[in-house]
Amino acid sequence: MTVNHSCVLSVGYFDAYFRLVLASREPVVEKAKEFIETNFFKGEACYYGEQSHRNFMTAFNKLKGSTKK
């Protein structure tokens, strides 16, 4: 998937990405987060900008909260 550095990636984008990683690679939310940080963000939190990283964390926290129920 091609990502443009000039756009802000939405919470919905990261929600879908988390679900894809959870289904295909890492069944644990924290491990999926580590995988995405390493492979998508290339180990640099703000690789796609601060707002995109905030949206990533919002999606992570939302998903993490929904798995505790």
Rank of each mutant, 00 (worst) to 15 (best):
M57I: 15
A45F: 07
D15H: 10
F60L: 15
K62C: 01
A23P: 05
A16W: 08
A32N: 08
L63W: 00
K33L: 09
Y48E: 04
K62A: 00
L9Q: 02
N55E: 00
A32R: 05
G49N: 03
L20N: 13
G12Q: 07
M57R: 08
G43I: 09
T38R: 09
T38V: 10
V8T: 15
K42G: 06
K33E: 10
N4F: 13
K62G: 07
M1W: 11
A59I: 04
A23R: 14
S6Y: 07
E37H: 01
A32Y: 08
H53T: 05
K62S: 13
N61E: 08
R19G: 10
M57C: 09
V29H: 04
E37S: 07
A59P: 06
P27Y: 06
T58E: 13
F56C: 02
S52W: 05
K68D: 14
R25I: 14
K69I: 09
V11R: 01
K64H: 13
S66A: 13
F60K: 04
A45G: 05
E50G: 11
N61F: 03
N39E: 15
V29A: 05
V21Y: 02
Q51W: 01
K42R: 08
E26A: 01
K62V: 05
V28C: 09
A16F: 09
G65N: 10
S10V: 06
L63E: 00
Q51E: 11
H53V: 02
A16G: 12
A45M: 10
T58K: 12
K64S: 11
P27D: 06
Y48H: 01
V11W: 00
T2D: 12
A32F: 07
Y47P: 05
N61L: 06
L9A: 02
F18D: 03
C7I: 15
K69G: 13
T38I: 09
T58G: 02
L9E: 05
F35R: 04
E34P: 01
L22Q: 05
I36D: 01
V29D: 04
D15M: 03
F60S: 06
G49T: 04
G49E: 01
Y47H: 15
M1K: 14
V28W: 10
E50Q: 12
L20I: 09
A32T: 11
E44F: 06
V21Q: 00
R54L: 00
S52Y: 03
L22P: 07
N39R: 08
S66Y: 02
F35H: 12
V29T: 11
V21N: 00
L9H: 00
L9W: 03
G49Q: 03
L22A: 04
P27K: 02
T67F: 02
N4V: 11
K62L: 08
H5T: 08
F18A: 02
M57W: 06
M1S: 15
A32S: 14
F35L: 04
A23D: 14
V3S: 07
E44H: 12
I36H: 04
K68Y: 00
S66T: 11
N39K: 08
N61K: 10
E34I: 13
A23L: 11
A23E: 15
H5W: 09
K31H: 14
